[in-house]
């Protein structure tokens, strides 16, 4: 469907962008790559009075790898992540997950900040942010603040961002080189939204036991989810077939997904377990 009417500005600074959002009084919306928000408007899920395009604001498209971790600018595109050689070692889970984002053409325009602000529980980036304990830096009329990923996503397509706030960057904390990880998702067709997905990692202590387990799930709730019961199963144990089976059962038991025309709730519960099992097997078999 054709888009609803809106005004359009593409300011050159964050301050101007925020002023436009303030003037819009809750009805103006920022737009980054537009790969989610243009369809949202086509479906009339949003009818903003104005789009404030962030494309002319310099400095938002940097990928920085440092001691504190990986910082992705809000306007970093999926293909920038996939083309970046350093990320494959600094935070291998990220490019592995981003390969599953939509299609080639969409990966050429879709952005990190846009996906986080869109907050689709079926998307990869929000779950990766949540799983990795990411911190999202935003700026608005009242100044800057940092939001933990767990506090950003409050419902389907809903965030704790104020209407005048713009995501500037996201920090994914540094990974020890020996971290074990896996990412799995399942969709009917390549590039479709996942029916379910799992991102998992853990560290191995001196006695060979898993610690610091983090498991995130895609598409089985109103927001990205952490599977804390399955994480608790892993911590302090050796990751072998018995542990994986226990974690799989815990994961399936702790999620309460909705069924829809694409997959029933029961199917999604089972699928989360299967995907976690595959992710943990990949993690355990990965050469550290």
């Amino acid at each position: 469907m054709k888009l609803p009417h809106f005004e359009y500005e593409a300011p050159g600074t964050l301050d101007e962008a925020i002023a436009l959002l303030v003037a819009g009084d809750g009805m103006a919306r920022p737009i980054a790559g537009g790969q989610s928000f243009v369809p949202v408007m086509a479906f009339r899920l949003a009818e903003p009075s104005m789009l404030v395009d962030l494309r002319n604001i310099p400095g938002l498209n940097k990928i920085e790898i440092g001691a504190e971790g990986v910082r992705l600018g809000a306007m970093v595109r999926w293909r920038d992540i996939l083309d970046h050689a350093g990320l494959k070692t600094a935070l291998a889970l990220l490019p592995e997950a981003i390969e599953h984002v939509a299609h080639y053409q969409i990966r050429n325009r879709g952005t990190v900040g846009g996906s986080l602000a869109h907050a689709d529980p079926a998307a990869e980036m929000p779950t990766i942010a949540l799983t990795c304990d990411a911190v999202i830096d935003v700026v608005g009329a009242k100044g800057k603040r940092s939001i933990r990923a767990g506090d950003l996503f409050i419902g389907p397509l809903m965030t704790s961002l104020e209407s005048d706030e713009i995501i500037v960057s996201v920090l994914l904390p540094a990974w020890p080189a020996t971290r074990r990880w896996g990412f799995q998702e399942f969709s009917r067709r390549r590039g479709d939204f996942a029916l379910a997905g799992v991102a998992a990692f853990y560290d191995v202590d001196a006695s060979g036991l898993a610690q610091n387990a983090h498991i995130g799930a895609i598409s089985v709730g109103d927001t990205p989810l952490r599977l804390t019961k399955a994480e608790a199963v892993l911590n302090g144990r050796k990751i072998d077939d018995a542990t994986i089976a226990d974690a799989t059962a815990a994961a399936s038991a702790e999620v309460d997904p909705n069924g829809d025309i694409h997959a029933s709730a029961r199917y999604r519960k089972a699928l989360v377990g299967t995907l976690l099992s595959r992710a943990l097997n990949a993690a355990a078999n990965r050469k550290a």
Partner: peptide, 15 residues
Amino acid sequence: GDAVRGCLMLAVQAQ
């Protein structure tokens, strides 16, 4: 140089 969806980009963004 990048293949993109013509329906997910506004004409004004092609400036």
